Amino acid sequence: MTRVLFVCLGNICRSPSAEAVFRGLVRERGLEDTILTDSAGTGAWHVGNPPDERAQLVGRHYGYDMSDLRARKVEDTDFAEFDYILAMDNSNFRNLERMRPSAYAGTLAMMMDFAGRNGEEVPDPYYGDLSDYETVFDMLKPAAEGLLAHILDEMKK
């Protein structure tokens, strides 16, 4: 089982959107028994809440249902449980680097690295409008496809 965790600040916009897009690709290929997905935030402000209504609205428009997701905070144990931990921006990446135990053997990376856009951030749409959420989904799709291709290549080795 390969385990993937998507991380942003509050776990109500970008990381649940990334999880929904990636989970959709995993389901399309019938890999639910092989790849597990989750998302979390480095902050705890929204723990227990569903994704932002705007993220859900745009997600549904793109064919992704994320109504079952609930925000949670990144825990130290996530480094023992997840093979891939993917940050949406530099600030959260740095927070995760500080949390990462020296023995972590998984991959800690930026989400957009898997779209060939190394170091690029997925912008936070929280203070924007629906077009900002659409931009996020448009960015996440090629990154999720690249991530899945990478994981499938690694599984072949």
Score class of each variant (00 low, 15 high):
Asp78Val: 07
Met139Gln: 14
Leu152Trp: 06
Leu5Arg: 05
Thr2Gly: 03
Gly116Val: 09
Ala103Trp: 15
Ala109Asp: 10
Trp45Leu: 12
Asn95Glu: 10
Leu9Trp: 02
Val58Met: 04
Arg94Met: 08
Leu5Lys: 09
Glu75Thr: 13
Ala143Gly: 07
Ser17Cys: 09
Met66Trp: 04
Arg100Leu: 04
Gly146Gln: 04
Ala115Phe: 04
Phe22Lys: 00
Thr37Gln: 08
Leu96Lys: 02
Glu28Trp: 09
Leu5Trp: 07
Leu69Gly: 01
Asp113Ala: 11
Phe6Ala: 01
Tyr127Trp: 13
Phe93Val: 00
Arg60Thr: 09
Asn49Leu: 13
Leu36Ile: 15
Lys157Ile: 10
Pro142Arg: 06
Pro125Leu: 11
Phe93Cys: 01
Gln56Gly: 12
Tyr64Gln: 06
Ser67Gly: 15
Ser131Val: 12
Gly146Ser: 06
Met1Ser: 13
Thr2Leu: 11
Glu97Val: 12
Tyr62Val: 05
Leu86Asn: 02
Asn49Pro: 01
Gly24Lys: 07
Ile151Val: 15
Phe22Trp: 07
Ser15Cys: 09
Ala105Val: 07
Gly24Thr: 10
Ile35Asn: 02
Ala20Gly: 14
Ser91Thr: 13
Gly128Val: 10
Glu32Asp: 13
His46Ile: 07
Asn95Pro: 03
Val7Leu: 09
Ala18Gln: 03
Met155Thr: 09
Leu130Met: 14
Pro101Ile: 12
Gly106Asp: 10
Asp52Cys: 05
His150Val: 01
Arg70Cys: 10
Gly41Phe: 02
Arg100Asp: 03
Met155Asp: 08
Asp65Ser: 13
Pro142Val: 03
Ala87Pro: 01
Val7Cys: 05
Arg100Phe: 02
Asp132Asn: 13
Ala18Val: 03
Ala115Thr: 03
Gly106Phe: 04
Arg3Gln: 10
Asn92Lys: 05
Leu108His: 04
Ala105Tyr: 03
Glu28Leu: 13
Arg100Val: 03
Gly116Lys: 07
Phe93Asn: 00
Glu28Arg: 15
Thr107Ile: 14
Ala18Glu: 01
His61Asp: 15
Glu81Lys: 10
Leu5Ile: 11
Leu147Met: 10
Ile12Phe: 03
Pro101Trp: 14
Asp124Ala: 00
Asp76Gln: 14
Ser15Phe: 02
Gly63Ala: 12
Ser39Pro: 07
His150Met: 04
Thr2Ile: 15
Met111Trp: 02
Thr2Pro: 00
Glu19Cys: 10
Asp65Met: 11
Ala40Glu: 03
Lys157Tyr: 09
Ala105Thr: 13
Asp65Gly: 10
Tyr126Cys: 03
Thr77Trp: 10
Ile85Leu: 12
Ser67Val: 11
Thr34Trp: 13
Asp129Ala: 13
Ser17His: 00
